[in-house]
C-alpha cells in the first residue's frame, strides 16, 4: 500500500444544462494520505459534499479522475465501484442513517452482512466494534433510544466495522452540541485514525479544527487553500 490514499485530479462537476447549469466543483485536485485526518471546510454551497461524493465513488465527475490506492475508480464498472465502497471506504453520514428498526449491533453489522458474513459472526464482530466505541452495553437497544452522540458513535462503529482504508465523515458535528462534537472528533483522531487509514471530514465547524492534520478550504467550487496543521493532536489508535 502506498502512502497516498486518495488522489483527485482536476475534478469538475456541474449540474443542469444550458442556463440552469451550475458548476459545483471547478477543477479540484488534492491528495489525502494514509494516517492523515483531512478536513474539507468551507461555507454551504462551496462544493464540499459534491467533492466528497466524487472521491468516494458515489457521484461521477464530468471531468477529471479519482485514484483510490492507485486505481482510477471512475474507470470501473458500477458494481465494482460499489464493491470498492464496501471494502475500502467507510461512511458516516450527517444524519447517521441508522436503521431504527434494527438493534444497535445489527446496524453495526450491516457492512459485514453486505460482505456476505454469516449473521451470527457479523453480530459478534459488530459487538467488538461497539466495544471500541464504548457502546457494547447498548448493543440490543434500538438507535432511537440512544443520544445523538451515541448514535454518531454507532454510525462510526458501522463505518469501521468493514475495516475500510478510508473513512469519510459528512458534517459529523452538525447535529451535536459543541462538547459532544469535540468528543466525537477526538475519539476519531485518537481511536479510529491509524497509519493505514485515511479519514476525511467535511465540516464547517471551526471548533474542531485543532484535530485536523490538513485542512482543505473550498469556496465556490474551488480549493482555495490546503494547509498542513503542524500542531494537530496526534492519533493513538489501537483499532485495526
Amino acid at each position: 500500500m502506498g502512502n497516498v490514499a486518495i488522489k483527485a485530479n482536476a475534478l469538475v462537476k456541474w449540474f443542469g444544462e444550458g442556463e440552469a447549469k451550475t458548476t459545483a466543483v471547478k477543477s479540484a485536485s488534492f491528495e489525502a494520505d494514509f494516517g492523515e485526518l483531512l478536513y474539507i471546510v468551507g461555507p454551504s454551497g462551496s462544493g464540499k459534499t459534491t467533492l466528497l461524493s466524487m472521491i468516494s465513488g458515489i457521484l461521477k465527475p464530468n471531468e477529471g479522475s479519482v485514484l483510490v490506492e492507485g486505481k482510477d475508480i471512475w474507470q470501473m464498472k458500477s458494481d465494482d465501484i460499489a464493491d470498492l465502497r464496501l471494502h475500502k471506504i467507510g461512511f458516516v453520514f450527517q444524519d447517521y442513517h441508522l436503521f431504527p428498526r434494527l438493534t444497535t449491533v445489527e446496524n453495526v453489522a450491516i457492512p459485514l452482512i453486505l460482505k456476505k458474513m454469516d449473521w451470527n459472526e457479523a453480530l459478534k464482530v459488530g459487538l467488538e466494534y461497539l466495544e471500541i466505541v464504548g457502546l457494547k452495553d447498548k448493543a440490543q437497544l434500538q438507535p432511537v433510544k440512544l443520544s445523538g452522540g451515541e448514535q454518531q458513535r454507532v454510525a462510526i462503529a458501522r463505518a469501521i466495522a468493514g475495516k475500510p482504508d478510508i473513512l469519510i465523515f459528512d458534517e459529523p458535528t452538525a447535529s451535536l452540541d459543541g462538547d459532544t462534537g469535540r468528543k466525537i472528533v477526538e475519539f476519531v483522531k485518537t481511536k479510529i485514525l491509524n497509519p493505514e487509514r485515511c479519514v476525511i471530514i467535511v465540516t464547517h465547524d471551526s471548533r474542531i479544527y485543532e484535530y485536523a492534520d490538513s485542512i482543505m478550504k473550498m469556496e465556490d467550487g474551488n480549493i482555495i487553500a490546503f494547509e498542513r496543521n503542524t500542531n494537530a493532536i496526534p492519533y493513538m489508535s489501537h483499532e485495526k
Partner: peptide, 18 residues
C-alpha cells in the same frame, strides 16, 4: 420511510440486485 436507509445501504456498497 426507509428510502434514505436504502440509499445509505447503496452508499455503503449494497448493489442494486441486493
Amino acid at each position: 420511510e426507509n428510502l434514505e436507509r436504502f440509499g445509505a445501504l447503496k452508499a455503503i456498497g449494497a448493489k442494486g440486485n441486493e
